[in-house]
Amino acid sequence: MEPIIGQGTAGSGSMDGLIIDTTTQNFARDVLEVSRQVPVIVDFWAPWCGPCKQLTPILENAVKAARGAVRLVKMNIDEEPEVAQQLRVQSIPAVFAFKNGRPVDGFMGALPESQIKAFIARLVGDLGPSPAEELVAMGREAFEAGDLSRAAQAFAQAAQEEPGNPAAVAGLARCYIKAGDFDRAKQTLALVRPDARNDPEFTAAEAALSLAEKAADLGDIGELQARIEANPKDHQARFDLALALNARGDREGAVEQLLISIEYDRNWNEEAARKQLVEFFDAYGPKDEVTLSGRRRLSSILFS
């Protein structure tokens, strides 16, 4: 598969004015007046505030995804404390939403992306999927159909629409993993925005890359199966066979081999089979049927 990274990034011109910094002097103009035409979210923050550094990028991305339906105004309370004092802000980050010149909603503390999107939806209504979300959906459909080229193009376009989007980055990385280009998969994963490193799709793609790299130098499956038939307690052969089966797409078979190994000796090689099983579950995702059934069986073995 040809490299896709570096084919350009989305322009920022359409985002001009959506996100600005303000002062006490300009607050009425930037927030109160503008809020009579479009809802305005005000983010009160300070350079020393750790949670602010987590929240602000999420707010910015959510406002960009709203495609002009809402604005974001940021206010450094160390430099401009007066407005925050008038609003009786006790702690930061503190976020207020303004409509028609008045505060109508708000929250304090760093919230996850899903709750930020719900907060914006309360202000402006359901906006439907963003262009990036539509492209990610197209990419997933193409990937499931085995069309890696079309999937990669869709994921790459989604990443251009929303740089660092975890679903787009994860999808494109999986395309490279499937094509055996692990170096480009690593390069792609490095593009995720910092606040999204714990996103389930992103962590699943990281786990998938780790598994693919482990499986690259394994022996022949037939030889591994022969070793197990000769010695059912050959844990290394079962471990390698699980990786090989997973690389072929046989998730059930891969999980089964590790569960058998754990039943024989859960402490082998510092619990290597259990740890590898957890990595499988991370790669498959928490809602995958193999993950759900595998976790149930693992619990049954460990707590029997």
Rank of each mutant, 00 (worst) to 15 (best):
V34G: 12
R36C: 04
Q37C: 05
I41A: 07
D43I: 09
D43V: 08
W45D: 04
W45T: 10
P47I: 06
P47V: 05
P47L: 00
W48R: 01
G50V: 09
P51W: 00
C52P: 05
K53S: 13
K53W: 12
K53H: 15
L55R: 08
P57Y: 13
E60A: 08
N61Q: 07
A62H: 04
K64C: 03
K64F: 08
K64N: 06
K64H: 00
A65V: 03
A66M: 12
G68A: 06
A69I: 00
V70D: 05
L72T: 10
L72I: 07
V73M: 05
V73L: 09
V73I: 07
K74Q: 10
K74P: 02
K74F: 06
N76W: 02
N76Y: 00
I77V: 15
D78Q: 10
D78K: 01
E79M: 09
P81A: 11
E82K: 08
V83F: 14
Q86G: 09
Q86N: 15
R88Y: 06
V89I: 12
Q90I: 09
S91T: 04
P93I: 00
A94K: 09
A94F: 05
A94H: 10
V95S: 08
F96Y: 13
A97E: 04
F98N: 02
F98K: 11
F98S: 00
F98H: 05
K99W: 07
N100A: 11
G101E: 11
R102V: 03
R102K: 15
V104I: 10
V104C: 10
V104M: 06
V104E: 14
D105K: 01
G106T: 01
G106Y: 06
M108R: 00
A110E: 04
A110Q: 00
E113Y: 14
S114D: 04
S114V: 09
S114T: 07
I116Y: 04
K117C: 06
K117Q: 14
A118K: 11
A118D: 13
F119Y: 11
I120L: 10
A121V: 03
A121R: 06
A121N: 01
A121Q: 11
R122H: 10
R122Q: 13
L123P: 01
V124E: 02
D126S: 08
D126A: 10
L127R: 01
L127E: 00
L127N: 02
G128W: 00
P129F: 01
P131R: 09
A132L: 05
A132E: 07
A132Q: 08
E133A: 13
E133H: 01
E134S: 04
E134T: 07
E134D: 00
L135D: 08
A137Q: 15
A137P: 01
M138Y: 08
G139I: 07
G139N: 03
E141T: 15
E141Q: 15
A142P: 13
F143R: 14
F143K: 12
F143E: 14
F143T: 05
E144R: 14
A145N: 13
A145L: 13
A145W: 00
G146N: 02
G146V: 10
D147F: 01
D147L: 02
S149G: 07
R150G: 14
R150T: 15
A152D: 12
Q153F: 09
Q153V: 02
Q153I: 03
A154H: 01
A154V: 03
Q157I: 02
A159Q: 12
A159S: 11
Q160K: 03
E162H: 09
G164R: 11
G164T: 14
